[in-house]
């Protein structure tokens, strides 16, 4: 089992001096994921907070080979890098024993929305790569617009709450399930507050034969509107309310990695962030009820899938 003390002494592949916000969750995620393989690594990063805040020329926070080409194509860009690796190996221009890992990275906008097609195509073709979506539920880099990962009832600048609107009126797209439907060897959902779980999942993803996908909850104090020191508590709350279940699907078999002893009401989650503040007006009570129902339904469904998977 990995120890934090040992991880802390590994070389950073993402370093200090990046421009992400105070209390941002992105570095916490990648600090762990980038340590889950010791092989050389090449990253393709979609446009978004991570990309912008790490590469403001002439500075870069990347201490690893990295490319950005556009917003919607991290998956097809890394697929191209991987294809060239295979080609040059076949042609004997890269030593046969040289191992390189390939990683595509995007936010929820770059993954659930505009990049979904490229991601679907790249995993369907079976490129050997890991894709990590850091899901902060919003287009954060451009100032807080809705994505298909923005939850029901959250206020986003393109789905704002107002006297006639309770915020976003649609629920979240279930991206992890979409990726499971591609029948790839490994899909998992993780969160930064359980670093060991995140580390294990990243390791499994890097070691999978074929494409692997991780969906990681990403704290965003700026857009979620909470005291930035409280982020890890929020991640815990997301798991305890089952708003963000931690689970993995290995070759089609579901396993829940964290079951709260006592499922907490989503109310606690909603109260913790400014983006849900308007839900506490009387006329929006039904939204809170609906959110609870949706979370209960999804959790129930997931529990059943895990139960079926555990049968021999």
């Amino acid at each position: 089992m990995a120890k934090l003390k040992d991880l802390a002494q590994m070389e950073d592949r993402l370093v200090a001096g990046h421009g992400m916000c105070l209390g941002c969750g992105i570095p916490l995620i990648f600090k762990i994921i980038l340590r889950a393989t010791e092989d050389p690594l090449i990253i393709a990063n979609a446009t978004g907070c991570l990309e912008v805040c790490t590469t403001i020329f002439p500075r870069t926070a990347w201490n690893v080979s990295w490319i950005h080409s556009a917003f919607e194509n991290a998956a097809s860009t890394i697929a191209g890098v991987e294809a060239m690796y295979k080609a040059l190996k076949n042609k004997g221009k890269i030593p046969a024993d040289k191992k390189i890992k390939f990683l595509g990275v995007g936010g929820d906008g770059g993954t659930y929305d505009i990049g979904l097609q490229a991601l679907s195509g790249a995993v369907e073709r079976g490129h050997e790569f890991v894709y990590v979506c850091y899901d902060n539920n919003v287009y954060a880099n451009t100032g807080g617009q809705r994505s298909s990962a923005t939850p029901l009832g959250a206020s986003a600048t393109t789905a704002p709450s107002g006297s006639k609107s309770p915020g976003k009126i649609q629920g979240r797209k279930d991206l992890a399930q979409i990726m499971v439907a591609h029948k790839i060897p490994y899909v998992a959902q993780a969160s930064p507050h359980r670093w060991q779980d995140l580390y294990n999942k990243a390791k499994k993803a890097f070691e999978a034969v074929g494409p692997a996908f991780l969906n990681v909850l990403c704290l965003c104090p700026t857009e979620w509107k909470y005291d930035e020191s409280k982020g890890i508590k929020l991640a815990q709350l997301a798991a305890d309310t089952c708003v963000w279940p931690l689970y993995e699907v290995e070759n089609g078999r579901y396993k829940i990695n964290y079951k709260p002893k006592q499922k907490k009401p989503v109310l606690e989650w909603l109260e913790s962030q400014g983006r849900f503040r308007h839900l506490f007006k009387e006329e929006n009570a039904w939204i809170i009820e609906k959110i609870q129902q949706d979370v209960d339904r999804d959790w129930e469904w997931l529990t059943r899938l895990a139960e079926i998977s555990s049968r021999p």
């Binding site: 097809s76 860009t77 191209g80 060239m84």
Partner: peptide, 15 residues
Amino acid sequence: HSAMSVCIGAAAAGG
């Protein structure tokens, strides 16, 4: 769009 993105990734990879 992805075809050209693959070309870009592949060319940047070095070939």
